[in-house]
Every structure is written in structure tokens, then in C-alpha cells.
Amino acid sequence: MPPETDRILSDFVDAWNAGRRPEVDTYLARAPDAERDALAGEIATFLAFAPAPDYDDAALEAIRAEPAVLAAAAALETPGGLWPQLLPRLRERAALTTGDLAARLVSTLGLRADREPKTRGYLEQLEAGALEPRGLSARLLDGLARVLEVPRSALEGAGAVAAPPAPALFRAEGAAADTLRADLDVIADALAAPAGSGWDDVDELFRGGAR
């Protein structure tokens, strides 16, 4: 092995351990062409198991300012979770418009062709963070994983990290509260139940939950 490549690897390791946030590409660029892939493999081995550095405050602030980190942090505060960040990326990587994705989903899941517009509407809501992720069915996740060519596990957690929806507030006291409480229970049950005649297989996919 050329000594220069030995040194480059060591320089990377030292910079990592010191929390200096070394850029892999910079170090790979220093290596001779014939050694570059081997060096990449060795850096990968180190990165796979190396302890995270003890970053100082400035380094942590810089990491927090990375777009991916900002996006993930924002996702934790919104009811849509990671879906508004993740779904458009996966869709665009698959070179699909929302309409294309809806069409592929309808076909993959064996739905009637006239369900496509409604499916598209739900997908748009999902990307906008306007759809409660806990309502997404297992069948939908299977279909999306197949169409987008990603492991289902990549999708499963996207909604689970979402902020819980804001609870409804009920402010009443004494007799007024007693009078209303029973009515509210009935209303809550009705809201939680699937709608009657308008509820179809697309609603079941996007709002039916795991059942």
C-alpha cells in the first residue's frame, strides 16, 4: 500500500475523532486514482463502527443547520410527520408525478380506475402534511413501497414520529359539563367511525388505519 494512502486514512480518522467534521470527498480526492475505491472502503469500515466525536457547540450548531436535519426536526413538530419530506423525494426519485403515482398505486392495488383522482387527492394531502399518518393502512404502505421501490420499513416510521394531533378542548363546569359530556362522547364515537355511504376503498386505504 502506498504510504500516502495510509496517511490519508489516518488523517481522516484523526479529524473525525477530533470532531472536525472531515469531508470524505476531500480525502478521497487526495488518494491516487488506483487507491481511491480501496480507501473509500476503509473509511466506510471506520465510519460504520467509530464512536461519534465529542462535537463542540459550534459543530453541533452547524449540524443542526444542515437542511436534512432542519427538515427532520420540523417533522417532529407537525402532525404529518416525515411524510411531507419523504414522499416527494421518493416520488421524484422514481420520476413520478403525483398523478403518475396515483395511477400506479391504483393499478398495483387492483382498485377501479375511477379511484385515481381520489387517490391523487389523498397523496397530495399526504405530501402537504394535511393527512393524519396514523390512518394509513398497511395495504397502502405495501403498495407505496412496491411502486416507489423502497423497503416498506422506510415508510413505516415516517408517520410514527409525527406530533400528536392537538387535542380538542372542552371547557365547561358543573351542570353544563354534565349535560354536555354524554353528548360529546356520542359525537366523538361518530367522528372516529368510518363514514357511511361515502366511505370507499380509497378512504379505507388512507384513513382506515392498520385494521
Binding site: V24, A40, G41, I43, L47, I63, V161, A163
Partner: peptide, 26 residues
């Protein structure tokens, strides 16, 4: 919610690892 926050802090500490591993992928 607390688990999600702590997980996010843990993964943030590993952002450079993720980025570096992507750069070494062949």
C-alpha cells in the same frame, strides 16, 4: 414524543456518519 425527540438528537450526532457513508458507497 420524548422518545422521538431523543432519537432525533441521537441521529443528529450521526449525521456526518450518514453523509460520509453515502460518499464512500460504491
Amino acid at each position: 414524543p420524548e422518545a422521538a425527540r431523543v432519537w432525533e438528537r441521537l441521529t443528529l450526532r450521526n449525521f456526518d456518519r450518514i453523509k460520509g457513508l453515502c460518499a464512500t458507497f460504491r
